[in-house]
Structure formats: C-alpha cells, structure tokens
C-alpha cells in the first residue's frame, strides 16, 4: 500500500490530516481491533492514524509530523470526500 502523507498546515502548532480520495473512514484496522489513535494520544511522524477505503482499496493515512491527537473530526465508517479534514494533530 502506498504511503500517503496528506497534511494541511492550519497554524504553526496544529495540522489536519485530510482524505486523499473520496471513500469511507475507518478508525481501526478491523472492527475487532482497537482504533489506530485516540484523542489525547501522542504519535510519531509516520504512524498510521486511520484508513480510507475507496472501491475496496484500503489506503493507510500516516501522520506527517509527530504530536498529540487533538480531535477526530468524523465518525468511524463515515463517508468522507476528497480533501476533507479528518484528524487534527497538535505538533509537539
């Protein structure tokens, strides 16, 4: 799977991970497993933060920079549009 590092700088201290393509947002690798990230969790650059499924193709989204997950802006299994903001990360 291709590594996509979609990120948009919002302010010097936070950025938002955005969907690279229209699809379905998944917080966990499978329904039985724990979410990749929770609000308040510290993450490193390159960590997988969520999955977008589009037409049966699963794309892992990774954090551009390390930091703390500040907000998750969509619900698990919600449809997301291309470029939609998904996860807000505060740069450590």
């Amino acid at each position: 799977m291709e590594q996509l590092k979609e990120g948009q700088i919002m302010s010097p201290r936070t950025y938002k991970v955005t969907a690279p393509l229209t699809g379905t947002f998944y917080r966990a690798p499978s329904p039985e497993e724990r979410p990749f990230v929770e609000i308040g969790q510290r993450i490193n650059a390159g960590d997988v933060v969520c999955i977008i499924e589009s037409m049966k193709v699963f794309t892992e989204l990774r954090a551009d920079q390390g930091g703390v997950v500040k907000n998750i802006l969509v619900e698990d299994e919600d449809a997301v549009m291309r470029n939609q903001e998904i996860i807000e990360i505060e740069v450590a």
Binding site: E2, L21, T22, G23, S54, M55, V57
Partner: peptide, 14 residues
C-alpha cells in the same frame, strides 16, 4: 474500471 491508469490505478469515484 473507475480507476486512474496514469496514477497507479487509484480508485476514481464521482
């Protein structure tokens, strides 16, 4: 298929 052959066959809904 609704995929982009110029971009590694990325899905292309729309």
């Amino acid at each position: 298929n609704a995929e982009d052959p110029e971009d590694n066959f990325m899905p292309s809904p729309g």
